[in-house]
């Protein structure tokens, strides 16, 4: 059985707690790997060495930090196929959809190249007699990102990229369902020139999460997941004096007016409702047609499209580029 690791101080680190979570192949139901669950002590050690590494990273000028992001863009593009396949195998989403997951994360890394511009402060000349006033934006120190299973590349990248570009160290706790891609991204960041220890990956469950939330070293917490957990993490992090941003659940409504193009609306609903098996916080799960005539027309268009949907495991070989995809799927492929 393949045993996954943590990523500590720029290298894979075997779990020492003796506790593991099963990583499934969701297409077969078989366990394909064991993911270590960090103890409080392992989590604290990761936070400690992140704090030590952050001092030099925070003092590195923003332009140099941005160059790490530039290199990361190149490396992610180089390894795109490999990353997408690893992502699909643990998550179960299609390979084109896995590439979308990576691409939307990559776009935030591209944006982070603007760090020197984004971090510029403000200045008031002669705010009083002989007095100048200026502001600067400084990193928080060590921050934690606790991320969900449904976008195992995009969600960590949305947080790790900006946090690092700002000069912080990050401890990432990815989902134990699909932890391989976050570990691969950690390897690529080191290859891109990120100093060791600045980005740590700690696999775990509530024990690791509570250790992060109660740590006096952790200054900020980003979370994405379900609403009850988002509320729990927000309460506990802020009670401990940290800043927090916690994103929860959704029930996205799409209103269909009687004058809408019904073919367009139906195609859109197929992609938005069923893409990634509905495991997206931006999935449309409620369609609200206005008027009975609109509802009847819409359902007449939806049913044959739903019947044509192909639900399947990802192909076992890398032959997916030649696999056909339905016109509805292609039309929505650019939308995460």
């Amino acid at each position: 059985m393949k045993e996954l690791s943590h990523w500590i101080d720029g290298a894979h680190a075997k779990g020492t707690s003796g506790r593991f979570a099963d990583v499934y192949n969701p297409a077969t139901g078989e366990v394909q790997a064991k993911c270590p669950m960090a103890s409080a002590a392992e989590t604290e050690a990761a936070i400690g060495s992140a704090a030590a590494a952050q001092i030099a990273w925070g003092a590195t000028n923003p332009q140099k930090r941005a160059r790490v992001m530039m290199a990361m863009v190149g490396l992610m593009n180089r390894d795109m196929d490999k990353l997408a396949e690893a992502l699909s195998r643990e998550h179960g989403k299609t390979l084109p959809d896995a590439k979308g997951d990576l691409q939307r994360g990559l776009e935030v890394i591209e944006y982070c190249i603007a760090a020197p511009q984004m971090l510029k402060g403000e200045f008031t000349d002669d705010a009083g007699p002989g007095i100048d006033m200026y502001s600067m934006r400084q990193p928080l120190g060590v921050v934690a990102a606790i991320m969900p299973f449904n976008f195992p590349a995009m969600m960590p990248l949305w947080h790790v990229g900006p946090a690092l570009a700002c000069g912080n160290a990050v401890v990432l706790k990815p989902s134990e369902r699909d932890p391989s891609v976050p570990l691969m991204l950690a390897e690529l960041f080191v290859e891109a020139g990120l100093p060791k220890g600045v980005f740590q990956v700690v696999n775990g469950d509530k024990e690791a999460v509570d250790t992060l939330l109660d740590s006096e070293t952790i200054q900020g917490v980003s979370f994405v997941g379900s609403t009850p957990i988002a509320q729990y993490i927000y309460s506990r992090a802020t009670a401990n004096g940290k800043r927090a941003q916690c994103f929860g659940g959704a029930k996205n409504h799409m209103i269909i007016m009687p004058d809408a193009d019904m073919d367009q609306a139906a195609d859109a609903l197929i992609g938005a409702g069923y893409g990634a098996a509905g495991e997206r916080c931006m999935a449309i799960s409620v369609a609200v047609p206005v008027g009975n005539e609109t509802a009847d027309k819409l359902i007449d268009k939806l049913v044959p499209r739903i019947e044509k949907l192909r639900v399947a495991p990802i192909p076992t070989a890398m032959t997916w580029t030649s696999a056909p995809s339905s016109p509805a799927r292609r039309r929505n492929a650019s939308l995460a």
Partner: peptide
Amino acid sequence: KSMFGDLNQHGPDSFKFYTRTKTV
């Protein structure tokens, strides 16, 4: 109930979230 906190993910908000302002 979809968000607890003040600043969003990515874009300018992320640079605000991951830094603190010092005024001199």
